[in-house]
Design a protein around this nucleic acid. Structure first.
Lengths: 114, 114
DNA sequence: ACTATGTTTCGGTAAATAACGAAACGAAAT
DNA sequence: ATTTCGTTTCGTTATTTACCGAAACATAGT
């Protein structure tokens, strides 16, 4: 139990993973969209996403050749609390606002296939 | 700002540091009391405490030859939110309950000078 | 069947982390 | 002044982490 909390905090203890959660709380995204925002290698983003998934914070589903990621809609209690907590934090953060602007205004095709 | 949140989560992303916070939310403690509960080297506990202090989660004050640690009574907003969050989590966790039982029932002198 | 494209897995590297014991530090008591 | 005792700092080690590019995998379209 305390181990689960540790895993949740570890998942959230990285700047890039916090940014991912804050983006996904606006809308679901695929790996390459996130990559375009964070400016990391695709494999690195994939790794971050799997850490968030293992912690129970996010889930994914297939859509054509894309795999979309979204906030876990059925989290267990500690995860649910953590997600709510993150949702209330950093709403005024400049990085978060900038990230969200990008994903809201730019199209997936343009973002991924530059 | 997002960096501060990262530091806070990092501070909380270790099982032993979570246990420390949960203990301090019951009452202030010195290094050797915490050491006795966590069963870690004194230097390790000191290191954990300094990570929590740097994050703004705890503060310390001198009392004779002891240095006592307590939850930061004047945290800034993100820290305050995190502390409240932790306070609401893990109340039923067995490890947390056991830790608190020890620090509430056993005397500092006995605990430290075994 | 082949190609293109999005994603994951693998192998490797550099940096960060958690742990320890020994040495240094500081305050209280002898 | 010296010793004692709680604590911090230092130096070291083993493990974990974040990152990358290349290779493997999967699926859609030609």
């Amino acid at each position: 139990m305390i181990e689960q909390q540790e895993i949740i905090f570890k998942a959230l203890s990285d700047k890039n993973r916090i940014r991912i959660i804050k983006m996904l709380q606006k809308k679901p995204l695929c790996v390459c969209e996130i990559r375009a925002v964070l400016k990391l290698a695709v494999s690195t983003v994939s790794q971050h996403l799997s850490i968030l998934r293992e912690a129970g914070l996010i889930t994914d589903w297939k859509e054509g050749k894309w795999i979309n990621y979204k906030i876990n809609p059925e989290p267990d209690q500690p995860v649910s609390n953590a997600l709510l907590f993150v949702q209330l934090q950093l709403e005024d953060d400049e990085t978060v606002k900038k990230d969200r602007k990008i994903i809201e205004t730019v199209d997936r095709i343009i973002l991924c296939c530059k």
